[in-house]
Design a protein around this nucleic acid. Structure first.
Length: 480
RNA sequence: GAGGUUGUAGCUCAGCUGGUUAGAGCAUCAGAUUGUGGUUCUGAGGGUCGGGGGUUCGAACCCCCUCAUCCUCCCCA
């Protein structure tokens, strides 16, 4: 017999881990609901054709495909087709509905777009939805990267108002403040990036340019220059680009307004770039008036000190997904080494891919698994999450067992989470079990207690034990 | 897709330049102890040393292949 195992990049979650994860989900859900978003769920699998071509070349490679069932039952004439397609599948990156008709969900945005198109007649636009479900990617697992992970998305479709962008930024703020994760929300606009590409003479190379400058933090100016040269940018264009990006070395909370003013001046000559700057300005204006924090930075505890969390304008932020058209946003946690813990943006024509034109959307995503890892590392989970049932009844067997069961029923009727040790095992074994489970109280219904219609209540943290009536016991446990 | 790390008991890991019967702690089970745990003592069970092949009188250790794992790059949450 081989050792049991689970697929690469997947995890089991212990009871304690599930409770901590649920704490994150519950926190996010409460905020989504507060902002008027409605829940939605879609299937774990989609038709492969729904997903392919939506995430770029790299994305297509990372989609988990599901082998069709019943391939062996095909009729002879179908088998020729199947063999031909199979040859192609084996020889190059290629997938065919004949072999793999379905695939696992890669993100929550595309299934959402599909849902909106399929249900366009019934939805009230603007449609605001949130969705918390697992997604799968055939990536190589490493730190903070899993093959099965959960996303929590919230999106608005059917409205071009920049109020939506501002609200989503508020949701990010509230969520991370509530969870205790110090953060920076980087914002930029695809239109600004398009303006930059235009002004340095390569409007057609927008994607190459954004992929390169997105790495500015990581590989520095020289590294980005190298990459751009490789993509066919000349030195002159690159110099112009870096003028637009602004000089490095600015303080991280360099005034957003100053940054925008400066760029607006430089963007003179690019219509789309100027529009991008103006939009970003308007978003931040709206945000200031809606935000709990008035658009200011937020002091958050971090280790022994504190850290300024908040929104930051970053013209080098790019993001890979190529369906974004307006604002783009990405969240990183402060104080830990971790990739982005959230991201999103506006997409003007997402549903157009499925035949529904002129429907603009904007949304953000929370990477729950990374948020969990960050919170664990920073030790910001509340302590009391681990608790399960509050009390355990020791089982002394015989009439005492019957007596214990009647008490158990009364406890549960009073809404006190309790369990009985199901076997009349040796006392020491029952106590050890109770200790491991971490019950707050252990109840001892033995001969003396039964004869006097009472119960011994042992506080398991202090070891203190008292004989009391059943009613008093319920009162004590209900008080915590 | 490219590069590297590590695979020894249920878990965490020792194991010397290749040497006879592969160890420890924790966990489990039993007993001291059929009404007092977290913190006692005694004992027991548990291993194809990831798998396959090779070198050798002899391999957990050396060589090749393979699988798994974690990490880095690419890309992303």
């Amino acid at each position: 017999m081989s050792k049991p195992s689970i697929p690469q990049g997947t995890r089991d979650f212990s009871p304690a881990e599930v409770r901590k994860r649920q704490y994150i989900f519950n926190t996010l859900r409460a905020i989504f609901e507060l902002y008027g978003f409605q829940p939605l769920e879609t299937p774990a699998m989609e038709n492969l054709t729904t997903l392919t071509g939506k995430y770029g070349e790299e994305g297509d490679r990372l989609i988990f495909k599901i082998l069709n069932n019943g391939l062996h039952e095909k009729k002879e004439e179908d088998k020729n087709k199947l063999n031909a397609e199979w040859e192609k599948v084996l020889s190059k990156p290629y997938s065919s509905p004949v072999v793999t008709e379905r695939a696992l969900r890669y993100d929550l945005t595309i299934p959402f777009a599909r849902y909106v198109v399929m249900n366009q007649n019934d939805l009230a636009f603007p449609f605001r939805r949130y969705q918390m479900q697992p997604v799968w990617r055939a990536d190589r697992p490493q730190k903070g990267r899993y093959r099965e992970f959960w996303q929590c998305d919230c999106d608005v479709v059917g409205s071009t108002s920049l109020i939506n962008e501002a609200e989503l930024l508020c949701i990010y703020e509230e969520a991370f403040v509530k969870l205790g994760v110090p953060f920076i929300i980087q914002v930029n606009s695809r239109k600004i990036l398009a303006g930059m590409a235009e002004l340095c003479g390569h409007p057609d190379k927008l994607v190459d340019m954004t992929v390169a400058i997105d790495k500015l933090d990581k590989i520095g100016r020289a590294g980005v220059e190298g990459e751009l040269l490789g993509k066919g940018f000349d030195k002159n264009a690159i110099d112009r680009l870096f003028v637009l990006l602004g000089e490095g070395g600015k303080p991280i909370y360099f005034s957003k307004q100053e940054q925008l003013d400066e760029l607006k001046f430089k963007m003179n000559g690019s219509e789309i770039g100027t529009q991008g700057v103006k939009e970003l300005e308007q978003i931040l204006e709206y945000h200031k008036s809606i935000s709990k924090y008035g658009g200011r930075n937020i002091d958050m505890p971090l280790g022994d000190g504190a850290m300024q969390s908040g929104i930051n304008v970053s013209f080098s932020l790019a993001r890979g997904l190529n369906y974004y058209t307006g604002m783009i946003v990405e969240v990183v946690a402060l104080g830990v080494q971790m990739g982005s813990i959230g991201g999103g943006g506006r997409y003007d024509d997402l549903t157009g891919l499925f035949g529904l034109k002129n429907l603009s959307g904007v949304g953000v995503s929370f990477g729950v698994d990374r948020i969990y890892d960050v919170m664990d590392e920073l030790q910001v989970f509340p302590d009391q999450l681990a608790a399960g049932a509050q009390a355990m009844l020791v089982n002394f067997g015989g009439e005492n067992e019957t007596y214990a069961l009647s008490i158990l029923q009364q406890l549960r009727a009073s809404n006190i989470a309790a369990e009985i040790y199901p076997d009349a095992a040796k006392f020491d074994k029952q106590m050890k079990y109770a200790n491991k489970r971490g019950f707050a109280y252990v109840l001892l219904p033995g001969d003396d207690e039964r004869n006097n219609k009472k119960i011994s209540v042992k506080n398991f943290a202090t070891g203190e034990q008292k004989l009391m009536s059943i009613d008093d016991c319920i009162t004590t446990l209900a008080a915590g």
